[in-house]
Design a protein around this nucleic acid. Structure first.
Lengths: 198, 198, 198, 198
DNA sequence: CATGAATGAGTCTTCATTCAT
DNA sequence: AATGAATGAAGACTCATTCAT
């Protein structure tokens, strides 16, 4: 059926657009480039998307959904706060390293979003940060950690994630596991948590 | 003298452009907007700049120079590694918090730079990171710190700086001194440095 | 039968197109709008029409045919010139008032017709005006009227018809009968005809 | 100075646009055509106009202003109602015959106007009709005329004007004076006015 | 120095039309 | 018959840049 083909084209458009938005930025990317990358004419794009803004919006919302899904499932069955926190950090660093492109777009193209999509994305972003913050709080409440400032601590976590996405390369000198392990130690220390405990 | 006026106009253009690049991004900013903000016509811009790219290049190089000057003078007369490191962190966080606009541009518009300017900016950026890394290394060598990975540690520092620039507001709930102090503590812990020692 | 359904769809397309051409004009109406109004997809239109121009041509030719049929049957069995003329005016005003949409399209979209259809429509239009002109001439020849200029008089008649179509609303303050009666009087006076005579 | 040149270009654009809107209609006219007719590039148009709609709006408002100015000055110093009415009709027919292009645009492109310009044009149009209607009313009040319906009578006048614009050609068989004289007689008769009286 | 008209390439988007399913 | 993806041309409009005044 052509139904499948259509879906494939729509996906290809999102993929191509994400690649180009990553490389050149949303504003600097023309739909001509997107169409060329997909292998269709510019006008044909409009059989699958309703406009350039919406395309960006969908991509960014999709990214945030993936991120939320990942973090939620990572902590799903951990009842111990410290255990959940460790799992969350693992997921957090790993996701950012493995989805560098998407993470970068998610961080840098917020200002190109139309108001409505912006609100949605910001809401999801707040939700994500809320999850991290609650985990930090719970670890602190349990008495295992000596958190200086929960808000700042969550910011620091977000910062590390975004930054890993910038420099980490799969073919670089450190394996992803090593990176995750090193960052985990650093974060634990930051919070006055003794790594061994967890 | 009209010489002065000219200089003032040229500066006003850089200021206006930086504001707009920050708010809307380089690609999304038109020289018409810049001219309007300065209060002149588009054509008149070309009496002061030679093109849009060069304008961006100058802004970014200027930012990097300011940053380098700041960090250098902060550690100028500190002979003790730990003392110098503490001063550098203080400067690093403070600069990023106080120059949010410039820092943001410096991080997000690299890809809009023409090759030549890009090389210059990247060189300065590498230089800056080199300074941080050397400080970390020296502190580690002295034996006061237990650094997990020097490179990662410098990355983490850079990440925190960029991120502070995003969220810190002069009128927010924390004073700049408090922010600096908290971040300093967190970084010291990360490195296994006992704050009290320094 | 699907034969009937097909005819019904074809008619619905003409109806929808006429509505839209009336409201927005031929050039400003897209086939997408037409299809949407009918409740089918754009591509499906081409099972019933062969193109946008032809659609317009058919509509306009249909309108002219209706008009010609109406005027002819209105004067069919009137042998007295004055009687026939009165009947024709009645029909003329009434038709224009009752078919405002079609009349408006017929007047305003001539320039959007392709040459061939244009010739056809203009021929029918000339034919219609010829009928009016002949009636005027006959009334004048009979000596009952004092026509200043037959051509101008026929133009005036055409003008009134087109204009009635613009302002007359079925739910307005005057009934159609009143409008017809008033216009008839005015035209008779214009021609120096005493209304009572006829 | 270039000031004059600029004004001339701006005028040339309005002229060219009016010609093309007349010939092909607003929707069917592209700014490319307008620019080509003026002898500049499409983009250059935007140094003089702010958009296609505004261009149309300015043209139509200009037309209505001209028409209002003409009718007002035609009746300026006539104190006798019948005399003023005769002068108004003269002006009305003459203006419509001599400004066929503008009148046609004024009548046919109302639906292409943006709401704001539409309101302005409709207001001016109402004002014009109001003037005609008041003249008719005054003639009727004076007792010289037997007007069947003032509103209809004013409509009829408007209709004749629009229609004259359609068929009258300066090089046609009738001189403009003859046309005006014939129409005047016809209108007087319509209103039961004895031409000789005035 | 400032102006503003002109340029020409480029932007997103819409459209009538075709065609395989 | 109906669908919907694809096409290619065209639309209005914006932009960085140039240059005569």
């Amino acid at each position: 059926l052509s139904r499948r083909r259509s879906v494939r084209t729509a996906d290809a458009i999102q993929e191509a657009a994400a690649d180009l938005f990553y490389k050149h930025g949303f504003e600097a990317t023309s739909l001509r480039q997107v169409a060329a990358k997909v292998g269709i004419q510019v006008g044909s794009l409009y059989n699958h998307i309703s406009g350039k803004d919406v395309l960006l919006g969908n991509i960014m919302i999709g990214i945030m959904d993936d991120l939320l899904t990942a973090i939620r499932s990572s902590i799903a069955e951990k009842s111990e706060p410290a255990e959940a926190f460790r799992a969350a950090i693992d997921c957090h660093i790993r996701f950012h390293a493995e989805h560098a492109r998407d993470v970068f777009i998610g961080n840098s193209e917020l200002r190109s979003l139309e108001p409505k999509a912006l609100r949605q994305v910001v809401a999801k972003r707040d939700e994500y940060e809320g999850i991290l913050r609650e985990l930090i709080q719970r670890v602190a409440d349990e008495g295992h950690a000596d958190v200086i400032d929960v808000r700042l601590q969550s910011y620091a976590l977000m910062a590390l994630g975004s930054h890993v996405a910038v420099w980490y390369k799969a073919k670089g000198p450190m394996s992803l596991d090593e990176v995750v392990s090193a960052y985990t130690k650093m974060i634990f220390r930051q919070m006055g948590l003794v790594s061994a405990e967890v």
